[in-house]
Design a protein around this nucleic acid. Sequence first.
DNA 1: TCCTAACTTGGACTTTGTCTAAGTCAACAC
DNA 2: GTGTTGACTTAGACAAAGTCCAAGTTAGGA
Lengths: 139, 139
Amino acid sequence: MSDLLERLRGRGWRLTSQRRVVAEVLDGEHVHLTADEVHARAAQRLPEISRATVYNTLGELVCLGEVLEVATDGRAKRYDPNAHHAHQHLVCSGCGAIRDVHPLGDPLAALPASERFGFTVSGAEITYRGLCPDCTTGP
Amino acid sequence: MSDLLERLRGRGWRLTSQRRVVAEVLDGEHVHLTADEVHARAAQRLPEISRATVYNTLGELVCLGEVLEVATDGRAKRYDPNAHHAHQHLVCSGCGAIRDVHPLGDPLAALPASERFGFTVSGAEITYRGLCPDCTTGP
DNA sequence: TCCTAACTTGGACTTTGTCTAAGTCAACAC
DNA sequence: GTGTTGACTTAGACAAAGTCCAAGTTAGGA
């Protein structure tokens, strides 16, 4: 994730402590935090960071293509730092846990021209739903 | 959609004018209205219908499996009355237009066991993204 | 070390959705 | 028809998620 900070600097970003902390919080695999969760974790390291800054920084990271916005439920958006490897999401209907997954083949291939209605189709987002091992065995 | 009202009556629903109007508003193909849009259209026919009733009625229709909730962006949920025919969605990144589409094959087949992490996978939602014919030709 | 545009802050505001207490009415029994 | 009753509706308060703004702060170049 430190390369991320360097990449951003190269694009003219000012490297503030707030941005550094947000980037650090988003480091890792299978990370899918809401903006409020990012704010809470960032505030552990930098207590006076404001919600507005977290929203601003997340929005910029999304615009720069460094972080993906994921909307798996109708609630808060989640932010996924795994933006450089194409993947889809598997969501537990019980507890909400999210995993990054890699289906076989090109999802676009399944949509025939007759079902494209003249659209120029450029991507597909897939949300698989099911129960995770913990939720499968009942409550 | 009149069968819908009869079906609901058979399940013990009281048939009020408010519920009738909401069901009428949701009639049609490629309908993907937000709760507020449903409320606005319902209010044209029944001016004093409240937002709470629209939310209640939509929630009940979703629970009964008569209407699907669709979250294609991080904004308001949309309600899709086409619940009895499996389909996916194609969304215009320019204007937000939504079409129901029918990809080939079973989306679940593309997710190998090694990518299921022990989950019991039961469904998949696909959002195709692209530009509609109007938005493709530039602004 | 200074300057300045870029960044951050707190709080007001908006949008979307939920909840509640009080009033209304659809459907059933008679 | 009329009465009864519990389900339904209503307005408005509340909550969660996100945006916007004016004022204050600061990173990084000169």
